[in-house]
């Protein structure tokens, strides 16, 4: 069973998670090769975010096993998984609300080490601030560096959310509904940005917007009621009777 494996960014084996009596996730398997682009779709409460949280280590799996980059991380802390090269965004933005946009990215670039050097005044790390500026430019927040996060629009907060994850220079990037609340033009920008993500970065995307989900992914996973019910190419998913059944009458769009 425990084969050292370097070709896979992520392997999820028979993972389940219960919340009290609720089976939020049931026996899910998932394999993602390095550099793959995967979208996860599914109705509200299907367990998509729960899957993310398990992969990121926010809470432990009730059962099952999770491997990141060929290493068993099932019992590993969130911080350690992040250091292995995993970055994620949150469905509802988790930002440093009282700080400025630039400070948010500065912290995100923090390298995560508890070193004596971190007692240096923050302004004495000009290269880190510059890297932050470049990141903000990439997500379209160049003008907003000095703004306090609490004053940002919802869309801008989502953009910052993305910048924070990119700051880690991850090997595996997990985005939880990055387009939620975006305007059409912001959506276009997002798709462009996602397509520009370097090939070697593996992407796992939860997205309610079918256009984005199918446009970006090479493979799509459909979840329903805590289970993975389908997996296939975007074309297969588009043609699938089952998917249409679940999303009958465009309820998917309502869910956004």
């Amino acid at each position: 069973m425990i084969m050292p494996d370097t070709g896979h960014a992520l392997r999820v084996r028979g993972v389940s998670r219960n919340f009290g009596g609720l089976k939020a996730l049931r026996d899910v398997d998932l394999e993602i090769a390095d550099g793959e682009r995967i979208s996860v779709i599914g109705t509200n409460g299907a367990g998509k975010s729960t899957l993310f949280n398990l992969i990121a280590g926010v809470f432990p799996a009730t059962s099952g096993r999770i491997e990141l980059f060929g290493e068993d991380v099932t019992g590993m802390s969130t911080a350690k998984r992040a250091k292995r090269g995993l970055a994620r965004t949150f469905q509802t933005s988790r930002l440093f609300e009282q700080l400025t946009v630039a400070e948010n990215v500065f912290i995100a670039l923090g390298g995560s080490e508890f070193r004596g050097g971190s007692l240096r005044p923050a302004w004495r790390s000009p290269s880190r601030w510059e890297r932050g500026e470049r990141l903000l430019e990439r997500v379209g927040l160049r003008e907003k560096g000095e703004a306090v996060v609490a004053d940002l629009s919802h869309g801008e907060q989502r953009q910052l959310e993305l910048a924070m994850a990119l700051a880690l220079q991850p090997k595996l990037l997990m985005l939880d509904e990055p387009a939620a609340g975006f305007s059409p033009s912001e959506r276009t920008h997002l798709v462009k940005l996602l397509r520009e993500i370097p090939e070697e970065i593996t992407l796992l995307l939860i997205e309610h917007d079918m256009d984005i989900a199918l446009a970006v992914a090479s493979r799509v996973i459909v979840m329903h009621d805590g289970e993975k019910i389908l997996e296939g190419t975007p074309d297969e998913i588009r043609a699938s009777e089952r998917v249409r059944e679940i999303y009958l009458g465009g309820s998917l769009d309502e869910a956004v």
């Binding site: 990121a56 926010v58 802390s77 969130t78 911080a79 350690k80 992040a82 250091k83 970055a87 994620r88 949150f90 988790r94 930002l95 440093f96 609300e97 009282q98 700080l99 400070e103 948010n104 500065f106 912290i107 995100a108 923090g110 390298g111 995560s112 508890f114 050097g117 971190s118 007692l119 240096r120 005044p121 923050a122 302004w123 790390s125 924070m164 700051a167 880690l168």
Partner: peptide
């Protein structure tokens, strides 16, 4: 004041605002 304006102090403020995010960024909260 010095500690608050250091990188360490900024990280502390990050923890104040969102410990979950700090963990996700690799900080040992």
């Amino acid at each position: 004041r010095y500690v608050a304006t250091s990188s360490f102090g900024l990280a502390l403020q990050g923890i104040r605002d969102s410990p979950e995010r700090m963990s996700a960024l690799g900080y040992n909260v």
